[in-house]
Amino acid sequence: MAAGGDHGSPDSYRSPLASRYASPEMCFVFSDRYKFRTWRQLWLWLAEAEQTLGLPITDEQIQEMKSNLENIDFKMAAEEEKRLRHDVMAHVHTFGHCCPKAAGIIHLGATSCYVGDNTDLIILRNALDLLLPKLARVISRLADFAKERASLPTLGFTHFQPAQLTTVGKRCCLWIQDLCMDLQNLKRVRDDLRFRGVKGTTGTQASFLQLFEGDDHKVEQLDKMVTEKAGFKRAFIITGQTYTRKVDIEVLSVLASLGASVHKICTDIRLLANLKEMEEPFEKQQIGSSAMPYKRNPMRSERCCSLARHLMTLVMDPLQTASVQWFERTLDDSANRRICLAEAFLTADTILNTLQNISEGLVVYPKVIERRIRQELPFMATENIIMAMVKAGGSRQDCHEKIRVLSQQAASVVKQEGGDNDLIERIQVDAYFSPIHSQLDHLLDPSSFTGRASQQVQRFLEEEVYPLLKPYESVMKVKAELCL
């Protein structure tokens, strides 16, 4: 049975990233139509530049190519590739079939990587351009969430054990800070992308030097003109047959890092959902379990974690691919890159769409948070109580021993009897502590235990987050809708 299948058929496997999760716009960027249309555009740009620099290419040939950029006979191309065992030459023939007058000058002087690699770089750039505003929107939604809850005390956790208090907004800023680093890295790697350009079979530009009869300047002009037509500021000066596969490492490393950030955020949300302090959106008709109707599973956060793990592992592909590119190139890269580049971007696209949807509907339960604080705060307040007693004339050592005994009794009630923490009640009825009984409410005010959390939130948002989001103001209103 021949390899390949009808990918629109229910009898043929289709990647869930495309069929179930990723956005239509990201799927289109990695589609065959987008790819092969870009090949034709690159052939047109090459012909236009070659004509401008004096090669015998007519206006009629150029116009014929322009008129057929979208006229792609995919069936013919597939048949040609089956016959020739070469995808680029299959599309040269297919393009030439609908451009008979231009057929002889299509791909003039070029090698397969002229269309293959340059198209990949265009796709990487455009895919990054799709991700950047999506990530900015996630940051914006979380920034709104953090600002609104900047002063809401909550129990902090280290080692997932109760620690000092923080605020809900401050905790959210930990998430935002990681995503801001990801946004900066995505922008950097996007701006650092260079075009492969017009380089020939081993990167020496020998074929173009021959076409222009040894004119170095025209060869350099050709490279520059096509690079500018493709919208790049610069091209690699040095290439082998391909652009260095280190570029793929750079791009997928940034995406993998984004995956790590999203995994951490969504894990926190899942843990908070278990504590009943916070939940992701839950639709009115949504079913959490087929057997347990009360369940409210954090399905979206779980999906993000599941896909983020996949995204983090994909960076190993370009690392290994770059390491086995012998001399000017081997074909070890080809099949692998067809999979890992598309999957990385479709996965990143999915987790950003999902995280935006989550961040637009996060639900906080202040009463649950308050109750958990009441359970733990008495123990945390013991040092403040000791200091207040010393100020009232008591002995630190005597007070410490009193607190120690009462704390152990209260802990026994919590752990052995399943009761509430009654340390404060014990202190309130103990005559030894009568000098500070009137101060206990103040000493137990949760806001006095959150330090500068709310001020940190305000400063972080104003100095770091809002300036970073400013270039994306025009796209901030787009909502994230999930079908599944």
Rank of each mutant, 00 (worst) to 15 (best):
C399V: 13
C304P: 00
L186C: 14
L314K: 10
V457M: 04
L406V: 10
K276H: 06
L179Y: 02
A90W: 02
A431F: 07
D73A: 09
L341H: 15
T244S: 14
A77P: 10
T52S: 13
S334M: 05
L69S: 09
D420G: 04
N297P: 03
F327N: 07
L155A: 01
T38D: 00
G393K: 07
K246E: 02
D333E: 04
E48N: 05
D332L: 03
R188V: 05
Q51M: 11
Q456R: 04
Q286Y: 01
A291T: 03
S257W: 08
S12P: 07
F28S: 08
T52R: 12
P378C: 06
A431D: 12
R137L: 15
F36V: 15
G197A: 15
E79T: 13
L272F: 06
D445H: 13
G361Y: 08
Q320I: 13
S23L: 06
V413I: 12
M389Q: 10
L341K: 13
R303L: 02
A3C: 15
R300L: 15
G200L: 01
K101Q: 08
G104S: 14
R396N: 00
T227C: 14
S438L: 09
D398H: 10
E64P: 00
L314G: 09
Q375K: 04
E383C: 05
D223T: 07
L121P: 00
Y114Q: 04
A22R: 10
I358N: 12
A102K: 00
V88C: 05
Q439G: 09
I106T: 08
S67C: 13
M89I: 04
D144Y: 15
M65D: 00
T347Y: 07
V251P: 03
L346G: 09
F160V: 03
R141T: 15
E70L: 11
D332G: 01
N384R: 07
K229R: 07
N384D: 08
I123N: 05
Q41K: 12
V29G: 05
P298E: 02
E60R: 11
A146S: 11
L155H: 05
I385F: 09
Q221T: 11
C27R: 15
G156F: 00
R303V: 03
N118C: 12
C266W: 03
P318V: 08
I351A: 12
T350A: 15
D73G: 08
R337N: 00
I139D: 03
T330N: 05
L130V: 14
R190Y: 08
F433D: 04
A256L: 02
A342R: 08
Q177F: 10
D349W: 05
K35W: 01
R188I: 06
D144H: 14
V368F: 03
A230F: 04
A388D: 02
E220I: 12
D182M: 00
S31C: 08
R270K: 02
E280K: 01
L482I: 15
F345S: 12
A431K: 14
L174K: 05
K477W: 09
D216C: 09
E79I: 11
G109A: 07
L272N: 05
D215F: 13
I436P: 05
V390L: 04
C99E: 05
K199L: 02
G393A: 07
R374G: 09
N384E: 05
T202C: 11
L174G: 15
N185M: 10
A291P: 04
R37S: 11
I57Q: 02
I373P: 02
N353C: 14
T321C: 11
D216R: 07
N297R: 03
S23Y: 08
L46H: 05
V189M: 13
F236K: 04
A348D: 03
E283K: 14
C304R: 01
L314H: 11
H7F: 12
W39E: 06
Q320G: 11
A308C: 15
T354P: 05
T244C: 14
R20G: 00
M225G: 06
Y114W: 14
F157H: 10
V478I: 10
S334I: 02
P298D: 02
H400F: 03
V115A: 09
N118Q: 02
S31K: 06
T94C: 12
L272R: 01
I62E: 02
W39H: 09
H400L: 05
M316E: 05
V189Y: 08
M89D: 00
L124V: 15
D32T: 14
R303T: 01
E220N: 14
Q63W: 11
S323Q: 04
R459M: 13
G451N: 00
E279W: 01
Q325T: 09
L142V: 10
T313A: 14
R188H: 13
E464G: 07
L179V: 12
N185Q: 12
K246F: 03
S261A: 10
S434P: 06
R190H: 13
V138A: 14
Q286G: 02
D120K: 07
P133N: 12
E462M: 14
S207A: 14
I237M: 11
L255D: 04
N357Y: 07
T313R: 04
E79A: 09
E425H: 14
L142S: 06
E80Y: 09
S447A: 14
T382M: 12
I105C: 12
H107A: 00
L128R: 02
A344D: 04
H91V: 06
Q456F: 04
T119P: 00
T119L: 09
E81P: 04
T330W: 01
L443P: 01
